[in-house]
Design a binder for these strands. Structure first.
Length: 647
DNA sequence: ATAGGGTTAG
């Protein structure tokens, strides 16, 4: 490597640059002459002013660019996102032997990484002999961003063997690498190993590293591990809090997310939530349909002046949508000064889950007309809307336009939407054909959509085919087995039902218990059908029994096919009457005032009997009831449901 | 000597 202190080349006086005519003085001292031809300062200031082309021009006239000059050139190329110019600068650096400078190598790796050219970053790394920890870290970061987590972990092992010590940055990069890869399960152990390194090297007090650890366990779904790390942290900042709240919100622990936010972070610490915190909190409110909590959070957002931040507003739209408050969601959206594709997507899927398919399509078109390009998620949202509203032809057209007009490749989710709305419309052959002709391997999402449709139309043959694939793809997902058993039960094939249930038991697999929530006077109440300790249980059962008897006189026939046990009819009736959703309805009838709608959330799909029961209640009790199940909204009013019995 | 890291929208 050439020293940067090497004597500078002196240009012969016979070839002066035109802009600097030689004065007699210059000939007296070589150093003065060198200074007058030195373009380093010029290049640097051109870079700072963003004038990359002129800087490159000047570079060609400068025989001895300094390290700082190269650094600014690299940064300037990165800013411009100009790969060709970056390569030019890189070549020049190699030409004068500076490519063995670890500082510049680090900068080059970062540059290539920013330009999504991880192969070039890797080349820089491979060619440099003296690898400082900065060089290693830069490559780790580049590979992680490119999703090459496994490669990072392999290099990390090599680095440890070469005797180079990790620093505090290394740990955050390799922890992220553990989750930046498809092979999540295997890498959990790798992450735990790194966790041990971190403790061994005394970094357990380091906020950045420990927060990354929390996030890593969160992404592996290891909530207890994440909470343990978080609890042990001696110092936490707003990012740590946000990471832990997000961990709960993303892993289905919505109550815990709200509790940590309200009862711990706000009440007991000096940490101020920021926009990122609010996004996770709103997500939890949305998931629980906790409208009162959501409104409080909205108020808080306004007071803290976070209401102009795009992700926050999108989350607000989603929260109001998922709480059944479409007008509020629309209002929040209308007040936005600028709208990005995520905000539009929030609005589209808000109308979608409520069954307003045409409105969702209209919003989708408005988005395009306003000059915002649809993202793959826009299509998932609008196709999902078509599904919920039974808009088969519209859905097919949108799907085709995604490929033709927007040049997008459909993902498994897009195909699953297609299969879903074709299947629901009892066009099962067409749905099966879509699966056959997919340009990617059909995954569990797609087969699951087909199986769901088979359940609606009670198609045992196709259901067996779909479930065979599903059992191969996700052998431990109890939901698939239950769905098949459900179909057998509908078809009266109880021996098959028994077989499936026996199989479930032999594998120690359990169906997710049904759970319903209702928010009354700012407090969330949760119900399951098996909870013996619920203080309201007796009262609710008595009320349900009374209602059921009254409605039976008016023609209600309990839909007991959903019960997977071969029992006497009256036992089946007792079971469906104890479903969590009915308990929540009963609780709502007792605890809401006249004219106030009941709003319920459920973690599974609504069963036939609960659907029928709720429809009738909405008529006989003259009560508006909103139920959000795992897929969509049901708006019950005067004996009718907004889904048109099609869900 | 210099450089760089964690939480976010369907």
């Amino acid at each position: 490597m050439r020293s940067f202190l090497a004597p500078q080349t002196i240009k012969p006086p016979s070839s002066p640059t035109p802009s600097s005519p030689i004065s007699p003085l210059c000939c007296l001292s070589t150093s003065i002459l060198a200074a007058s031809t030195n373009k380093n300062h010029l290049i640097q200031s051109l870079c700072k002013r963003g004038n990359l082309q002129q800087a490159l021009q000047a570079l060609s006239q400068e025989p001895n660019p300094t390290q700082r000059t190269y650094e600014l050139l690299i940064l300037s190329c990165t800013d411009r996102n100009s790969l060709s110019d970056g390569v030019r600068v890189h070549r020049r650096i190699s030409d004068d032997g500076s490519d063995q400078d670890p500082f510049l190598a680090t900068k080059l790796i970062n540059m290539y990484s920013e330009m999504d050219s991880v192969e070039d970053a890797r080349k820089v790394f491979d060619e440099i002999r003296h690898r400082t920890i900065y060089v290693w870290n830069a490559l780790f970061r580049a590979l992680t961003l490119a999703g090459e987590g496994l490669e990072v972990l392999d290099l990390y092992r090599q680095m440890n063997m070469s005797g180079t010590q990790s620093d505090r940055f290394t740990y955050t990069f390799v922890l992220k690498a553990c989750v930046a890869s498809e092979e999540l399960v295997e890498l959990l152990n790798k992450g735990k190993e790194i966790h041990a390194h971190i403790l061994r090297h005394g970094f357990e007090t380091h906020v950045h590293i420990m927060t990354t650890l929390v996030d890593m366990y969160a992404k592996f779904g290891r909530v207890a591990h994440a909470a343990h790390v978080f609890d042990e942290m001696p110092v936490r900042n707003v990012v740590s809090w946000s990471a832990m709240i997000s961990c709960y919100a993303k892993n289905g622990k919505h109550f815990e997310a709200l509790e940590l936010f309200q009862e711990t972070m706000l009440a007991k610490t000096e940490s101020f939530p920021n926009s990122v915190t609010m996004v996770s909190v709103l997500q939890a409110c949305a998931a629980l349909a906790a409208l009162d909590q959501g409104k409080l959070v909205h108020g808080y957002i306004l007071r803290r002046g976070l209401d102009s931040i795009l992700p926050v507003i999108s989350s607000l739209v989603t929260m109001y949508g998922r709480c059944g408050k479409l007008e509020q969601g629309q209002r929040v959206f209308d007040q936005m000064k600028e709208r990005d594709v995520v905000a539009w997507n929030s609005l589209i899927s808000m109308y979608g889950v409520h069954g307003f398919g045409n409105k969702a399509i209209q919003v989708f078109e408005e988005m395009i007309n306003s000059g915002v390009n649809p993202s793959p998620i826009s299509f998932i949202s609008v196709l999902g809307a078509c599904s919920h509203a039974g808009l088969v032809e519209e859905g097919k057209m949108l799907f085709n336009s995604m490929v033709k007009d927007h040049g997008m490749y459909p993902t498994a989710e897009h195909y699953a939407c297609m299969v879903d709305f074709l299947g629901r419309a009892n066009r099962l052959d067409e749905a099966a054909k879509i699966i056959q002709e997919m340009r990617i391997e059909p995954g569990p999402l797609v087969w699951g959509a087909l199986l769901g449709s088979c359940r609606i139309h009670c198609n045992v043959d196709l259901a067996e085919r779909a479930s065979r694939r599903l059992f191969e793809l996700e052998p431990t997902n109890a939901g698939n087995y239950v769905l098949l058993a459900d179909i057998y039960a509908q078809a009266g094939m109880y021996r098959e039902v028994k077989r499936v249930k026996k199989f479930l038991k032999s594998r120690c697999l359990q169906k997710v218990p049904g759970r319903s929530w209702i928010e009354v006077k700012r407090k969330l109440h949760s119900f399951t059908s098996v909870d013996e300790f619920n203080p309201h249980k007796e009262q609710l059962h008595a009320l349900l029994f009374k209602l059921s008897s009254e409605m039976k006189e008016k023609g209600y026939v309990p839909q007991t096919d959903v019960v997977l046990y071969d029992l006497a009819d009256e036992d089946k009736e007792r079971i469906v009457l104890g479903h969590s959703e009915k308990l929540a309805v009963a609780f709502g009838l007792i605890n809401t005032s006249h004219g106030e709608p009941i709003r319920i959330t459920k973690n599974l799909r609504l069963c036939e009997d609960c659907h029928l029961f709720t429809k009738l209640i909405s008529k006989f009790a003259e009560k508006e009831i909103l139920v959000r199940d795992v897929n969509r909204y049901h708006h019950f009013q005067n004996g009718v449901c907004s889904c048109g019995d099609y869900w």
